[in-house]
Amino acid sequence: MEALFSSLLGNVDWYEIWLATLDTLLMLGGSLLFTIILGLPLGVLLFLSGPRQLFENGPLYAALSFVVNVLRSLPFIILLIVMIPFTVLITGTSLGVAGAIPPLVVGAAPFFARLVETALREVDRGIIEATQAMGATTRQIIFSALLPEARPGIIAAITVTAITLVSYTAMAGVVGAGGLGDLAIRFGYQRFQTDVMVVTVVLLLVLVQVLQSVGDRLVTHFSRK
């Protein structure tokens, strides 16, 4: 049994796999964190400045929308390369986990911001009106009513964004970011080591499944139905 296992997966260096998995998780965690830090306020701003909203502001909304659309329309693989000088500027390197996080964040934050905007639009206007009628400040409306009410939607948005980031991290291998995707490309594809390819794909699949089911569970929990 063990012989069969090792002959089938002869090229797999489990230590390498472990390191790559760790890199993928680090890239995912780091980029998700910064995506939320940047994307959440951006999404709130998009929502508030949008048509018929609390701070309706046509020019601001148009400008934010334009930036978001431009960033979202760039294929991630192009963004990775275009971003290199900027990445070096803020992290000192364009390689490894640190080098991958800036392009990942720039790629995912606009996407996440749009999802947040949509989640906030789902909040019943009556709830905002009721909160206004209680004499809430705008800050209180955002933090005591809008964000708690949109929480299930925002968690779903984080889940979708995290899964998108998993696939982005795989691409980031192209610019020397490391991680499972990098392993799959360098060994599985370029050296025809199909077994390495299979193992990395299975690991990525497990990661996505775990993210999705944790996200779904949190959404159900916070829906309070």
Binding site: I127, E129, A133, E149
Partner: peptide, 15 residues
């Protein structure tokens, strides 16, 4: 804050 209001669809926070 000195004027209460109630609504047709209640407008309670579901969360």
């Amino acid at each position: 804050q000195r004027v209460g209001m109630i609504f047709q669809h209640f407008n309670l926070l579901m969360s």
